[in-house]
C-alpha cells in the first residue's frame, strides 16, 4: 500500500514564497513612493502566491500530524477569513442597499485570500508550537 504525497511542493518552495512576499512589499512601497498610491491589490496578489507556497509546501519533517494541523488551520481560517472580509465590506466599503440598483462592493479576491492564508499559516505554526510545548512538559 503506497502512501500518496499530500503536498506538491518541496520545502524549498518556502524560500520562493518568502521572495514573493518580499517582492510584494517592495513593489507596494515603490508604487507608493513614485505614484502615492496604496495599491493593496498589488501587494495582496503577491502575498497570496507567497503564502500559498509557504503553507502548501511540505515541511522538513512532514507527516500525517503536520497534515492534520494544516487541515485544522484551514478549517478555522476559511470561516474566520470570510467573517473578516464581510466586516471589512460592511464597515469600510459602505455596501449598497439590495434594491439600490448598484453593485455590492467587496474587497478583491486577492485581499480575501490573503486574509485566509495569513490566518491559516499563523494558526498552523501556533499548533506546531503547541506540540513542542506539550513535548517539553511531557
Amino acid at each position: 500500500m503506497k502512501e500518496q504525497r499530500t503536498f506538491w511542493y518541496s520545502s524549498r518552495f518556502k524560500i520562493i514564497g518568502i521572495l514573493f512576499i518580499l517582492w510584494g512589499i517592495y513593489s507596494f512601497f515603490v508604487k507608493y513612493r513614485e505614484h502615492h498610491l496604496w495599491d493593496i491589490n498589488l501587494v495582496s496578489g503577491l502575498l497570496c502566491w507567497g503564502l500559498s507556497f509557504i503553507l502548501f509546501s511540505s515541511e522538513k519533517t512532514d507527516d500525517e500530524r503536520t497534515h492534520h494541523h494544516k487541515f485544522k488551520a484551514l478549517t478555522w481560517a476559511v470561516p474566520a477569513g470570510l467573517i473578516i472580509t464581510h466586516l471589512i465590506n460592511y464597515f469600510f466599503l459602505s455596501p449598497a442597499e439590495p434594491d439600490s440598483g448598484k453593485y455590492t462592493p467587496s474587497v478583491s479576491a486577492y485581499v480575501a485570500l490573503s486574509i485566509v492564508l495569513t490566518i491559516a499559516l499563523g494558526l498552523f505554526y501556533y499548533l506546531q508550537y503547541q506540540d513542542r510545548i506539550d513535548e517539553k512538559s511531557a
Binding site: M1, T61, D63, E64, R65, Q128, D134, A138
Partner: peptide, 22 residues
C-alpha cells in the same frame, strides 16, 4: 515509522489519534 518525534509524543499523551497505516 517515518514521522516526527512530536507526532509520537502526541499519540502517547492522547492528543492525536494516528491513521490506520501509522
Amino acid at each position: 515509522v517515518n514521522v516526527s518525534r512530536q507526532t509520537i509524543n502526541s499519540i502517547e499523551i492522547g492528543r492525536y489519534v494516528p491513521s490506520t497505516m501509522l
